[in-house]
């Protein structure tokens, strides 16, 4: 267990300077973000560095923050160093009007379907992906259903009065 969050953080800042930012440790997991153009460089560095060795992509997903102008969509990578058994969370933010993010499929084969899923639900356009098409939803769908502008229940329903209960 040589590797600690502090070591990772200092190695990242040494390599990328101010480009990597927003370091945080919610519930013990080191979390940071980088500009979206940098995502592959950061992940390749994390993968190749003999000390860091983040060679396992645990999870990849997107989050929609409609209120953050210019950085509405976040792509979140969970990476795992199996040797030192330490996880990190890496985020890139993108404008929803040009949701282009480089694909991680050249580093991780597992990113293929995860990125397809992310595209399917959030419309993140992974540049360079070998087969970027919908995976769980029907091909004819013309919107990205997990975005926050699609509420689950019909907002026009009038037969329910939620004024008293719930938030």
């Amino acid at each position: 267990m040589g590797l600690t969050n502090d070591t990772i953080k200092s190695k990242l800042t040494e390599k990328f300077g101010d480009q990597v930012s927003h370091f945080d440790e919610p519930y013990g997991m080191l979390s940071f973000e980088a500009p979206k153009e940098m995502n592959l460089k950061v992940m390749q560095f994390l993968y190749d560095d003999p000390e860091l060795r983040f060679t396992f992509l645990t999870d990849l997903c997107a989050v929609h923050y409609p209120d953050q102008q210019g950085r509405e969509l976040a792509v979140v990578y969970h990476l795992h160093n199996l040797t030192d058994n330490i996880r990190i969370r890496f985020k890139v933010f993108t404008d929803i009007n040009s949701p282009e993010v480089f694909t991680a499929t050249n580093i991780f084969s597992s990113a293929n379907w995860m990125e397809r899923e992310t595209y399917d639900f959030y419309g993140v356009n992974f540049v360079g992906h070998p087969n970027l098409k919908r995976i769980l939803n029907v091909d004819e769908m013309d919107y990205f259903p997990m975005r926050k502008e699609f509420p689950l229940e019909d907002g026009t329903r009038i037969d329910k009065d939620d004024a008293m209960f719930g938030r």
């Binding site: 919610p26 999870d59 997903c61």
Partner: peptide, 20 residues
């Protein structure tokens, strides 16, 4: 408010929950 990732050893692999 917070972000948490937790995983368990499911019967066929690592079952993770990423909750914001």
């Amino acid at each position: 408010a917070g972000e948490v990732y937790h995983s368990v050893e499911g019967a066929n692999g690592e079952l993770g929950f990423y909750l914001i």
